[in-house]
């Protein structure tokens, strides 16, 4: 099993890309909501929301990384494991990007847009598979993935400790 997994050094950059997208989205929406919360929630209550959000972002990032690792286990090594950084990073960028675009469009258009969810999701899945496939083949894309994941890895030094503290806060609030 362990042999089928990519090296830790390859997993971390992909996790960094996923975390960058997920935390980025959560923080932006958090800041968008903040002015309305300030009207009726105390600072302590807003910090609690932040703690839940950071915990959820960590779990979400780990879950998406887990899905990519699962794909890596299932598929032949040459398809995913050996080019995990490039294909994992592009799969995350395209898949999460498509989800984010849909969520944004839903917020703008409203509930009628939910009817588009299934065809949109299938199209997004197809595009993600295509981009992921191409990412392992084109030298430029492999280098771009390595460069970008290296660039955003720095954020892990911020995201992970904040999330671990947040997780502690959530745990304490639900135990006592």
């Amino acid at each position: 099993m362990k042999k089928r997994l990519p090296a830790f050094g390859a997993i971390l950059p992909v996790f960094a890309v996923i975390a960058f997208l997920v935390y980025g989205w959560t923080l932006i929406v958090f800041l968008w909501k903040l002015p309305s919360w300030i009207l009726f929630l105390t600072l302590g209550e807003i910090i609690v929301i932040f703690a839940y959000s950071m915990t959820a972002a960590l779990l979400e990032s780990l879950a998406i990384t887990g899905i990519l690792l699962l794909v890596s286990i299932i598929l032949p090594a040459a398809w995913m494991r050996d080019v995990f950084v490039a294909r994992g990073a592009f799969a995350a960028l395209t898949g999460l990007g498509a989800i984010m675009l849909y969520m944004y469009r839903y917020a703008v258009i409203g509930y009628d847009f939910i009817a588009e969810l299934i065809p949109y999701s299938l199209a997004a899945l197809g595009l993600t598979v295509l981009v992921t496939f191409a990412a392992g083949r084109a030298r430029f894309l492999i280098q771009s993935a390595a460069w970008f994941s290296d660039l955003v890895s720095i954020f892990l030094f911020l995201f992970v400790p904040v999330s671990l503290i947040s997780f502690g806060v959530v745990l304490l609030r639900n135990l006592f």
């Binding site: 997208l21 997920v22 989205w25 959560t26 929406v29 958090f30 968008w32 909501k33 959000s53 959820a56 972002a57 979400e60 879950a63 998406i64 999460l96 989800i99 984010m100 849909y102 969520m103 944004y104 839903y106 917020a107 409203g110 939910i114 969810l117 999701s121």
Partner: peptide, 16 residues
């Protein structure tokens, strides 16, 4: 009231 979910994946699952 609040159409933009704070978590992209959990929000998407919620829509599904």
């Amino acid at each position: 009231v609040n159409p933009l979910a704070g978590s992209p994946s959990f929000g998407y699952i919620s829509l599904l």
